[in-house]
Amino acid sequence: MSPGILSPDGRQQFRATKTLELPAGPDQPAFNIVLTMVTDTGTNVAVPRRISGVAWTVTEVFGQAWPNDDPATLMIDDEMNVSAFGGCNRFRGQMQPSGLGLAFLENIAGTMMACPYEIEAQERRFLAALAQVSDYVRYGAGLVMTDFDGRTVLHFVETPE
């Protein structure tokens, strides 16, 4: 395995701890690496997994980059209430613990704005991806939500204030 990811001053920040075999996609190699944060003492530590209280902006849905300058957003509070913007409409709902980590309830309430077809289609993809979420990985300012099989369905970054 590789030595990991180094900081600008050459210190190791992350170490590859496990390699997962994933099938190749169109024009994509078949691999995935799990990284563990390394402290100044060289020991492995868990990366914080808290995702509530952070405003998240979507960058990818089902592996495709968000196509316009008005991306979907997601906010989860400490009671697992969810508010989201899908590109045109706003949504509210709740998450619940699942066997792997979490799940979004299917009965999400939302506004019903008249949206251009392209934006509405992207919003439907975003909601379909949320419905498939069963776990997540938080890394620094990023958040990856995965389905039951561990495939990435959504990728977010923290929204700057």
Rank of each mutant, 00 (worst) to 15 (best):
M95K: 03
D135G: 09
E158R: 13
E161W: 02
N68S: 15
V54S: 02
G99P: 03
V133W: 06
D27H: 12
P8A: 09
A141R: 10
A128T: 03
N44R: 07
F126E: 01
A65D: 12
Y117R: 15
A30E: 12
I76T: 13
G10D: 01
Q132C: 02
G4P: 03
V34N: 10
D147M: 02
R92D: 08
Q96K: 15
L74R: 06
T36H: 00
C88T: 08
R124N: 05
Q64N: 15
T146L: 14
F126C: 09
P97G: 11
E79L: 11
C88W: 07
A109I: 14
A24T: 12
Q132D: 04
F104W: 03
L102P: 02
F62G: 05
G86S: 14
G101D: 04
R50G: 06
E21T: 09
L130R: 02
D40K: 11
A121E: 14
F148H: 10
M37I: 08
L143F: 02
D70H: 13
I76D: 04
R50W: 00
E21M: 01
V38N: 03
A121K: 15
V133F: 06
P71T: 07
G142L: 05
F14L: 09
V157P: 00
T41K: 11
S83T: 10
L154E: 01
T41G: 07
E79F: 06
I119R: 15
T111D: 09
C115W: 07
R138D: 00
M113A: 14
E120K: 05
D69C: 03
I76R: 06
L105Q: 15
E158I: 00
V47E: 13
F31H: 13
F14Y: 13
S2W: 06
D40I: 09
G4F: 05
W56Y: 06
T159V: 09
I76F: 04
G42N: 04
G99C: 00
L130A: 04
S134H: 10
Y139V: 14
Y117F: 06
F62R: 06
F156R: 04
F85K: 03
D70S: 14
A55H: 09
P23M: 08
P23R: 10
D149A: 10
L20F: 12
G53R: 02
T59V: 07
T41M: 10
Y136S: 09
M75N: 11
L6E: 11
Q94V: 10
S7Y: 10
V133L: 07
P23Y: 01
G4Y: 00
P29A: 15
Q132Y: 01
A121T: 13
P26G: 02
K18C: 01
Q132H: 03
E161N: 12
L143A: 05
D147P: 09
V54Q: 05
L143G: 00
A16R: 00
A55Y: 03
N32W: 11
F85L: 01
P48C: 13
P23A: 07
G87V: 01
I33H: 08
P48G: 08
R138G: 06
